[in-house]
Amino acid sequence: MTDTPLTLAQTDGRALARLRRWWSGETANPVKRVQFDRPLTPWMFLLPQLAVVAIFFYWPSVQAVTSSFYLEDPFGFGATFVGLDNYTDALTSRGYLSTASFTAFFCVVVTALSLGIGLLLAVKADKVIRGAETYKTLLISVYAIAPPVAGLIGMMFFDMHMGPFTEIAAWFGHDLRVGIDYWDTASALIVISVWKQIPYNFIFFLSGLQSVPVSVREAALIDARSGWRRFRDITLPLLAPTAFFLLVINITYTMFDTFPIIDVIVKDKPANNPMTLVYKVYLDGFKGNDIGGSSAQSVILMVVVAALTVLQFRFLERRVHYG
């Protein structure tokens, strides 16, 4: 298990190097020393995946880009080319900008909290011996719960009639009105999203911690008396690659995978409720029938995600060198 988190990283590190070689026109190194040399068989094996990718990835992606330059008639009678209008409309509209800033805020808070709590629990679970397996199982099991189910359970907890959180807030003299008050809804979204994401971070941090060689920890035990110092100087730097990987994954999670949670809590009533950019794409496209605008927003999101992913792989490339 020691080097497991690095395995994919290695592939993609090499993969990037291969891309460079490919661009520069050199022949790529064969992956294997011996390979089959048949012109048709590989295509037979590749065909199913390629077909799915072409039809369900490239076709819609291209369509998203094209329709972002058109203004579509709401009744479906043709479309007019409008150039970058959809983009400028989106980027200058107040609604879009406030959604964008909420998305950023939401990302920062959810990522910080779920990473922090996940790390804290992983460090403690790594330390205890008694009951370690039980803690692990309990802390991991929530991972499997679907975001909409998390949203539903969360909604009950924030229910205005009988939700425990509403009652707790009432003790402190706060009238919690999730679904009506902007910041109340935002808090509920944050709590539920963090709750759902902690197990994922926990699993990766724990596996990262367990891949720190025992003897390195022991050397640290001899070198430093204070447990906090050992954590800060030795454990944390060695966890940095895992943490960075998780940082990107968590941002992606908050941007995209929280969609069902928002949908369940906000329930198609955007009125005065916070939402993320992805939810707005869905709302404008499917509820507002603004296909061009929705597509333009999609393309903007594509650029953001693509940048994040490239960043992640670039980093993973370097991450290989540790250890």
Partner: peptide, 9 residues
């Protein structure tokens, strides 16, 4: 690109 960003097309 996750599915969510190209959901409409």
């Amino acid at each position: 690109l996750p599915l969510e960003v190209r959901i409409m097309p």
